[in-house]
Nucleic acid binder design. Structure first.
Lengths: 129, 129
DNA sequence: ATTACTGTATGCATGAATGCATACAGTCCA
DNA sequence: TGGACTGTATGCATTCATGCATACAGTAAT
């Protein structure tokens, strides 16, 4: 779970990136209901980010009912997390893929080259700076 | 073009939303190279947003070479980039790949899933290039 | 009880994002 | 030439995101 998190400098606030990526991870059943989430401090250290920034993300996740925060115990995946429709998620991925293809093609570059490089770049630990 | 813009309260900065949505529109060929973009003021009024916020988005688009801003004349979709040598092309591919990873990841989706789908989507019929 | 862990909280500082108002400076056309 | 339009710019105010440091408060295991 911790390993699937990556912060990028796109102008999107860090807490939003954490929130959305965790939501996606939960939807992908990377963690199941009842299981413990990474500690706020773990995330903060792993991403080299402030503890309160992580808390901000976690609080938003709790508001939507995705997780449950228990003081001094940890945070856990909610028993009945808001269903992220499988189809909707697939549509989301496809939408992003088509968008990427269009954007890349508009720049006069072969989308497949970019796709292959994306896989390479995300394979190792190279931080996409 | 103006009608395809929508600002949501997701914590994502407004200028980022405008920038990304316009990039998407350009990739979808909603506007073609050379054509005039909506005026900064038009966008600002349509979205009920500050003029400088729109400018922020436009400036980022110009940095990436997607559009060209001409003082007192308007902003226009950039012409298709000229063919370049192998190295330049490779550099461009890498830049686009990293950018795609960033935007996709920031949206909470696994970049590799998107990359794989990109390959699938471009595999079917001739990519025309 | 001590220790180590968890989330909760505060204060200060910096910078960015945004809105609002107001201008300035080119360009184009009637 | 004058007006209408375009991008450029500034100043002020507010809010938010973030980092950093420091603490507090529960929980659980030893």
């Amino acid at each position: 779970m911790l390993h699937s998190l990556r912060i990028e400098e796109t102008g999107v606030p860090i807490y939003v990136q954490i929130r959305d990526q965790m939501l996606h991870a939960l939807g992908a059943k990377l963690l199941r209901p009842g299981e413990q989430m990474p500690t706020m401090r773990e995330v903060a250290v792993a991403l080299k980010v402030d503890l309160n920034t992580v808390r901000h993300a976690y609080e938003e996740l709790e508001k939507t009912g995705a997780i449950v925060i228990r003081r001094a115990r940890g945070t856990f995946v909610a028993d009945a997390p808001p269903a992220v429709d499988r189809e909707e998620k697939a549509r989301r991925v496809e939408g992003l893929a088509r968008q990427a293809i269009a954007t890349v093609a508009a720049a006069g570059v072969n989308p497949r080259d970019v796709a292959r490089l994306m896989i390479q770049l995300t394979a190792k630990k190279g931080d996409g700076k």
